[in-house]
Simulated assay, not measured.
Amino acid sequence: MGRVAVVALGGNAITRGGQVGTYAEQAANAAAMVEVVCQLRAAGWTVVVVHGNGPQVGNLAVQQEEGANRVPEQPLFVLGAMTEGQLGSLVELALRKAGGQWLPEVVSVVTHVLVDAADPAFGRPTKPIGPFLPEAEARRQAAVRGWVVGEDAGRGFRRLVASPRPLRILELSALRALVERGVIVIAAGGGGVPVVEESAGGYRGVEAVIDKDLAAQRLATELGAEALVLVTDIPQVLLDYGTPRARPVEEMTADEAQTYADEGQFPEGSMGPKIGASIAFLRAGGRTAVITNADRAAASLEPGASGSGTRIVATRQRLGAAG
């Protein structure tokens, strides 16, 4: 299977701040985002792509609610499946255009992810979806629609939904077979469709959105990937963010990252899930986790390369041995 990297692309990068989310806007953003996949392929990596869907699934929920008097509303997990197909197509077309003659096969797979029906996240919605709203409008929507709302990243208020931890990828064996053939696979989009086991057998969807970074970690671990690449809009992780002491981190071990997390350096609403996913990946046997922007992602997987993002490694001795 060679060197496998699972790359997580943010839904907020597909529909950026200040944009309304037209198809043309999203297609242009996807074209820029897939450059990191092309760079990794050129460097010899087999790539699996995971994408977010927070803005898109929230916007689709608004469409559902506004049209409910004419067309029956669908559950949130169904909207997740819809956006997984929508954005998977968007990313696949962008890859086919960017890759040219060298591009191997590429396929998008609607992926179901097992969660625990008793996960405490169902009682504490924290995952923001949909557009940013002024506080007054968010409170009005909460009263009218029964939403839970909260402030997100200082940019406004958004709807909050449950975000349980991913336990298992149902389509894993099929995804592994595709990866072993060298196919570029787009999977677990939006964190995948959340399902729980039925007592009588089978699975059923649940009202939730799984964090795409945690889903990417679960997929990377189950595939035995060497690298987990979490693409965001910043070049490097910052310690003491928002203070005069703020400073970037080029490399840290999983233990150091955990210490910083325990100190409260990485808030749950921003960098927390990415750091948590990176630590979990490394402690499950992964070699390197990277948090950076698209421009630095490929360089960040080459030890000692200039212009890299933040690398998180199991131990520095292990990094040296790999280099």
Results as ranks from 00 to 15, higher is better:
R155D: 01
Q141H: 03
R176W: 03
L160E: 03
A162L: 09
G205R: 03
E151A: 15
S163R: 12
R140C: 03
P164A: 12
A153T: 02
E180F: 01
A188Y: 04
A142G: 12
V196R: 04
E198M: 11
V195R: 03
V193F: 09
A138P: 05
P164G: 10
V148D: 09
G191R: 09
V183C: 15
Q141I: 00
V193T: 06
V185E: 00
E151H: 05
L172V: 13
D152W: 02
G192A: 11
I186K: 06
S173L: 14
A177H: 14
L160N: 10
E197Q: 15
R158C: 11
R168H: 15
A138M: 11
V196E: 01
V179D: 03
A200S: 15
A200N: 08
E180V: 01
G192I: 08
G192Y: 06
V179K: 01
E137Y: 07
P164C: 12
V185Y: 00
L160H: 10
P164L: 10
P194I: 08
G154L: 02
G154P: 05
A174N: 13
V193D: 02
R145A: 07
L167R: 15
V144A: 13
L175A: 03
R140A: 14
L167T: 00
I169G: 06
A153M: 07
E180H: 10
G189I: 12
A188V: 14
R165S: 14
G182K: 04
F157G: 02
I186A: 08
G146Y: 10
G205I: 05
I169V: 15
Q141P: 00
R140K: 11
A162N: 10
G150Q: 11
E198F: 00
G154S: 04
Q141G: 10
L175M: 04
R159W: 08
R204Y: 05
E151M: 07
L160Q: 12
V179I: 04
A188E: 01
Q141E: 09
R139N: 05
S163A: 13
V196M: 04
S163D: 08
E171C: 09
R145Y: 15
G201S: 08
V206T: 05
V196N: 03
I169C: 12
G192P: 09
V149M: 04
A142M: 06
V183G: 00
R204P: 03
S199W: 00
E151D: 13
V149K: 01
R159A: 09
A142W: 06
E137F: 07
E198K: 14
A138L: 06
A138T: 07
A187S: 04
A200C: 06
R181E: 10
G154F: 11
L175E: 00
G150C: 11
R139L: 15
L170M: 06
V193L: 13
A136H: 13
R139E: 12
V148R: 14
G192R: 07
A188R: 02
G182F: 06
A162Y: 08
L178P: 03
L170P: 11
V193K: 07
V206W: 07
L178N: 02
I186V: 14
W147D: 10
I169R: 04
G191H: 10
G156K: 02
R145H: 15
L167K: 14
V193A: 09
E198C: 15
S163N: 12
E198H: 08
I169L: 07
F157R: 02
A143L: 13
